[in-house]
């Protein structure tokens, strides 16, 4: 028996919008720790890891660790029917091949339930080690979205270079080249407008912009995004979900063979 009640239902709506374009179907893993997911995109270049910790739910019942396979496009369709202020409850009975999403309006005058068919999904789970990254950048998520969007009108890939002077985003295409440099700026009114650069070692990596653009679908979840990079390793693009968890995207760099 699984029963998860999330008062801030809009978070789940935003999570689905953040991952459904990258991953079409995935297993959600439910344990006493929380509701999580790890899935690769269809071309196996990017990976998304979601965590919604059990403490973040108003009610969290998960009798045994289970994995429920869902089509994310269909799940997003159902969650779109929930109001932004609605409380969302996810329910699944043991052995059932369906999951139920229940939406309650804040004043309890409208209660809807949507039942969705589950799927059997074969998925490969990868072990992602906790790593100290050589460089990490915290910046406004809107700024990162803007940079990815702007650069993808010029080129297909972006080189992200971190030095002590700042972080540089470089692209080039048929029409020319573009460089955007963001410097550390922590002397701002609001912490969410700050850009903070931590650098143990300078790092420079190249990535396909279309994936980074897809990751920015998570922008409504968080004001701040963190980019973590080490030489020859995937970049981690992290959006925190309040204090209950995160969406992390991992993207393999393009490497000179």
């Amino acid at each position: 028996m699984l029963e998860l009640r999330l008062v801030q239902g809009s978070l789940l709506k935003k999570v689905l919008e953040a991952i459904k374009d990258l991953v079409n179907e995935a297993n959600f893993d439910c344990s006493s720790t929380g509701f999580s997911l790890q899935a690769m995109d269809s071309s196996h270049v990017a990976l998304v890891a979601l965590m919604l910790r059990s403490e973040g739910f108003e009610h969290y019942r998960c009798d045994r660790t289970i994995s429920i396979g869902m089509n994310l496009t269909n799940m997003a369709k159902m969650l779109k029917c929930a109001g932004n202020d609605d409380i969302i409850t996810i329910k699944a009975d043991d052995g059932s091949d369906t999951v139920t999403f229940m939406f309650e309006s804040p004043s309890q005058d409208k209660i809807s339930d949507f039942e969705m068919k589950l799927m059997e999904i074969d998925s490969e789970h990868l072990g992602i080690p906790d790593t100290e990254y050589q460089s990490s950048i915290k910046m406004p998520s809107q700024e990162f979205l803007r940079i990815c969007k702007d650069l993808s009108s010029i080129g297909d890939t972006v080189m992200i270079s971190v030095t002590k002077d700042g972080v540089k985003f470089t692209t080039s295409g048929d029409i020319g080249t573009a460089n955007i440099v963001c410097r550390q700026n922590t002397s701002v009114d609001e912490p969410e407008n700050a850009t903070e650069i931590k650098m143990q070692e300078p790092v420079s990596l190249t990535f396909a912009l279309r994936y980074l653009n897809s990751f920015t679908k998570a922008t409504p979840l968080a004001n701040i995004v963190t980019l973590s990079m080490s030489a020859d390793l995937p970049i981690v693009v992290e959006y925190k979900i309040g204090d209950m968890g995160y969406v992390r995207y991992y993207l393999a760099p393009k490497i000179e063979e």
Binding site: M40, H44, V45, A46, L47, E124, H125, L126, G127, I128, P129, T157, T206, A208, L233, P234, Y250, L251, A252, P253, K254, I255, E256, E257
Partner: peptide, 14 residues
Amino acid sequence: AKQQRSIASFFSPG
């Protein structure tokens, strides 16, 4: 030219 590696090649299964 730069080649795109798969994400799985960076992480161990499991």
